[in-house]
Amino acid sequence: MTKLSMTVNGKAVSGEIEGRTLLVDFLRQNLGLTGTHVGCDTSQCGCCVVHVDGRSVKSCTMLAAQAEGAEVTTVEGLAQADGTLHPIQAAFREHHGLQCGFCTPGMLMSAADLLQQNPSPTEHEVRDWLEGNMCRCTGYHNIVKAILAAAETMKGGMPQAAE
């Protein structure tokens, strides 16, 4: 067992882990942050996407130990402390961008990174970016619509993610 420390959603956290512990397992099991999901074992589905030092990462593909000292944001940290939703969360709700909700945390975190990098994506760019995020429910139609709508909102100077 080794000791590990990092910042998750703005709070300093630490824990004892086995060397083989994945970041997603540390988040879900040690910290109880079960918003980050596991949908596969081949790094394909994107249900587990979180931000590590500001960039989207598949947390099933990274050892917890590799995040030592990092700033991690999960879906639980996407809204502001007072509960105000991030524009991407609000847009998913507004445009029915989720059904069962299982892919949703990964979709939101992935989309948040996209809009940081490319504030005005085209539909094609959104679809291309989402290549690493699967959804079995929505057919992507409303997810794409929600991300494009969030981009519009955020251009108007709405608050950014808390990171």
């Binding site: 879900r28 099991q29 109880g32 942050l33 079960t34 918003g35 980050t36 999901h37 596991v38 999960t74 879906v75 639980e76 996407l78 809204a79 939703l85 969360q89 998913f92 709700r93 507004e94 029915h96 989720l98 909700g101 299982f102 949703t104 945390p105 939101l108």
Partner: peptide, 21 residues
């Protein structure tokens, strides 16, 4: 109508079987 269930899912508060310990 906007969905009632969305608030918990977009904030990571859904409660799926594997989330229960």
């Amino acid at each position: 109508s906007l969905r009632k269930e969305d608030q918990r899912f977009i904030t990571g508060k859904g409660r799926y079987t594997d989330d229960i310990s």
